[in-house]
């Protein structure tokens, strides 16, 4: 989250204060640029869900304690509820809707179905975004490591053993 934002990229050296009323914000989500009008206080989670109709990321707690809102910012997993949308200009957001480039489900989505890795499904998009990042990070070498590095995603239905099974299945495919 530390690469130069649009203000720098444009060589525009006089930063302007924006808000508190709605301002124009350009978000790049799943490879598409969107222009929306939001107040600076709006979270990335609310911008995605309420403005862009991307309702995959869920609001479990809105205070960073559950992981249901997990998305990627520049390819790294992050919590959309504690991120202000306006800070994401110049960064690439990926949500569960954009995880798979084609219409086919991502291998993890398939593995979650095969391993029955959910009950109510509320935590699932966050689990999947976190799990896909976990595999990229190389933090899935054994079950203890998967447990530790998936601990930011709480499952109220306690589907944890099956979530780990789904992660192992994809890890072992590759």
């Amino acid at each position: 989250m530390s690469s130069p934002g649009p203000a720098l990229a444009r060589g525009d050296t006089t930063p302007a204060e924006r808000g508190p009323e709605a301002v124009r914000v350009t978000l790049s989500v799943n490879g598409t640029e969107h222009e929306i009008h939001i107040e600076p206080r709006v979270s990335l989670l609310d911008a995605l869900r309420e403005r862009l109709d991307l309702t995959g990321a869920k609001k479990g707690c809105d205070q960073g304690t559950c992981g249901a809102c997990t998305v990627w910012v520049d390819g790294r997993r992050a919590l959309a509820c504690l991120t202000l949308a306006v800070t994401c200009e110049g960064h690439e957001i990926t949500t569960v809707e954009g995880l798979s480039a084609d219409a086919e489900p991502h291998p993890l989505q398939r593995a979650f179905m095969e391993q029955d890795a959910f009950q109510c499904g509320y935590c699932t998009p966050g689990q999947i975004m976190s799990a896909a990042a976990l595999l990229d990070e190389g933090h899935a070498r054994d079950d203890a490591e998967i447990k530790e590095w998936m601990s930011g995603n709480i499952c109220r239905c306690a589907a944890y053993p099956n979530i780990r099974a789904a992660i192992r299945a994809v890890r072992d495919q590759t």
């Binding site: 203000a7 720098l8 050296t13 930063p15 204060e17 924006r18 600076p40 206080r41 202000l84 800070t87």
Partner: peptide
């Protein structure tokens, strides 16, 4: 949550 304004700083001294 109250409203806020937002300024993206481009240099440390600023």
């Amino acid at each position: 949550m109250r409203t806020i304004t937002y300024l993206r700083a481009t240099d440390t001294a600023g």
